[in-house]
């Protein structure tokens, strides 16, 4: 597994609140291949952002990593000191956030913010750093880069701010970029521009990307493989084509069926929503977190956590229906919900 840039093994993260322990991430394992885009999909509260924050070790109190390993190029980030982590953040791994309005400093010029990671991680002069910052802004297709360096964030539109955020993240040529809902706050038109930009940059610089999103459309466009999370656990992991055309988990199928099909005749077809609401993570269901909302739930689903079933080399699903003792094998029967 030489070509995996990041490997997460049995990661568990909890928030120790006054109400009790909230298990935000439970036993999550996945790996990111070099130069590939991994999508993490899930609803709000499913633990996708906390997984990312854990990787960067920027969890806020009362959050703590309670177990597992985060192997970045073979080294466990969980064991690094704060000083060592500072050298990695923004340099080897960088992150962009959902809201481009609030993740920039409103009282600093864009140029000063762009040069900050460069000054922090390299021994570059301010003048050269500014030059590099202008290059970065043109890399993310902001016209008039040199002039724009002197602008303040409020002079940028939402899309431009997100571009500037990406430029900032790219400043030190990171090997891994974690993008936490980078397009959620943007219009569809700007969203498609940003997605195009991310995939162009990935090709140009050969870095890996973890893309966190709740939008399956975004996943379809840019990701190579997908991790589906629900109730702080991984439900299914597969290459993107398998997720859309050979999904083997009722939750993934439910998600796919709750979005209207864009192509073909969409009229007169009713959406099939997933009934119910996501679980309360203070008292997560003892078995599969999805069992209370699952149309195919069996007795075992409510009692024991589901097993990992390997469907093919890189496709696995956590569902009791795939167990060989399940009454009517889910796989043999084919997908119950035809898309």
């Amino acid at each position: 597994m030489e070509d995996n840039i990041l490997e997460i093994k049995n990661l568990s993260t909890s928030f120790f609140t006054h109400l009790g322990e909230v298990k935000a991430v439970r036993d999550v394992s996945f790996s990111v291949e070099k130069g590939k885009v991994l999508g993490i999909v899930g609803e709000s509260g499913s633990g996708k952002s906390v997984t990312a924050l854990s990787c960067m070790r920027i969890l806020q109190e009362p959050g703590r990593i309670v177990g597992g390993e985060i192997l970045f190029k073979g080294e466990d980030l969980g064991k690094k000191s704060n000083k060592e982590m500072r050298a990695i953040r923004g340099n080897d791994i960088s992150m962009i956030f959902q809201n481009p309005m609030s993740s920039m400093n409103a009282v600093l010029r864009v140029g000063d913010q762009l040069t900050e990671p460069l000054m922090e991680h390299t021994s570059i002069s301010k003048k050269d750093a500014m030059k590099r910052a202008a290059e970065l802004l043109s890399l993310v297709q902001i016209p008039d880069a040199e002039k724009r360096l002197r602008a303040y964030p409020h002079e940028f539109s939402g899309g431009m701010r997100q571009r500037a955020m990406i430029a900032m993240a790219l400043a030190c040529d990171p090997e891994l970029l974690i993008a936490d809902e980078p397009t959620t706050a943007l219009d569809v038109t700007t969203q498609s521009q940003i997605i195009k930009l991310l995939s162009d940059i990935r090709e140009k610089l050969g870095m890996s990307i973890i893309l966190i999103t709740h939008d399956l459309g975004v996943v379809a466009e840019i990701c190579d493989s997908v991790v589906v999370m629900y109730g702080s656990m991984i439900m299914e992991e597969a290459p993107v084509d398998d997720i859309f055309h050979n999904a083997c988990h009722p939750y993934t199928l439910g998600l796919l069926n709750s979005i209207p099909v864009v192509t073909g005749d969409s009229k007169n077809t009713r959406l099939e929503p997933i009934p119910g609401t996501p679980p309360n993570l203070l008292q997560p269901p003892p078995g599969c977190p999805f069992a209370p909302r699952c149309a195919y739930a069996m007795k075992v689903c409510t009692e024991k956590a589901p097993q990992n079933t390997q469907i093919s080399d890189n496709h696995r699903s956590m569902c009791w229906l795939l167990h060989e003792d399940a009454p009517d094998n889910f796989l043999k029967r084919g997908n119950p919900i035809v898309r």
Binding site: V188, T189, Q191, S192, D215, L216, G217, V218, A220, E221, C223, V240, D241, F244, H245, I259, V261, V262, T263
Partner: peptide
């Protein structure tokens, strides 16, 4: 605007 809308299917190239 329609072209910018995600396709919801990785097999359809935009």
């Amino acid at each position: 605007l329609l072209a910018a809308n995600p396709t919801q299917d990785p097999r359809i190239t935009k």
